[in-house]
Amino acid sequence: MDINEIIKPENKVYGKTPILKDNILHYCPGCSHGVVHKIIAEVIEEMGIQDKTIGISPVGCSVFAYNYLDIDWQQAAHGRAPALATATKRLMPDKYVFTYQGDGDLASIGTAEVMHACNRGENIVIIFINNAIYGMTGGQMAPTTLLGQVTATTPYGRKAELNGYPLKITELIAQLEGTCYVTRQSVQNPAAVRKTKKAIRKAFENSMMKKGTSFVEVVSTCNSGWKVTPVQANKWMEENMFPFYPLGDMKDR
């Protein structure tokens, strides 16, 4: 069958959601951020909640998330997104409110804000991108950097004596009474993407059911920071990140 016979509107099975703007993403080739942005956009489209969704972007590579999803956005100070989300949801309970935060933003400078928002059981969604490195500032150690992992500030590898241990913040958050759904996912292949999308959709649905905070960690890649190709980065993630940050639901109630 001729390819032009197939490429017709009625045969279209997958394409860019209109929730995504036409702006070209500023992320490096192969960066997980783009996939997670797309998933959130698709969930918003499928749930029909574009005009009811407020996103809160962090400081870090994804500070510019607001350039890509056509919804209302707040850009928070470093680590403070859960505080903004708390007030936004409490003042506008009919809105879907989510934060989008990296490992530096959420697990380092914003530890207090995320812990207490989750502990209060704010009816918000927290999307946590964990790529074990600071991307925007040029590849420095993150709280989630693995032992032995080389970064700009751990040039000989992360050492516990010097830098402490990688922080499993999602496990900590799962302990908090205020959270209803805590899960760790990834986006390196189609099956993983579909699982993450299901998780994010569930998190958005939870936020309207007054069940508490939903927290979705996405173990991600930073091929520029890790200094490997995008395909190698996915492999490195599977081999090194997944054993320490195992995928799956930690809590679902």
Binding site: G15, I24, G34, V35, K38, V193
Partner: peptide, 8 residues
């Protein structure tokens, strides 16, 4: 398309 970060 599912894994494409840039939705191209």
């Amino acid at each position: 398309a599912t894994v494409c970060p840039d939705s191209v």
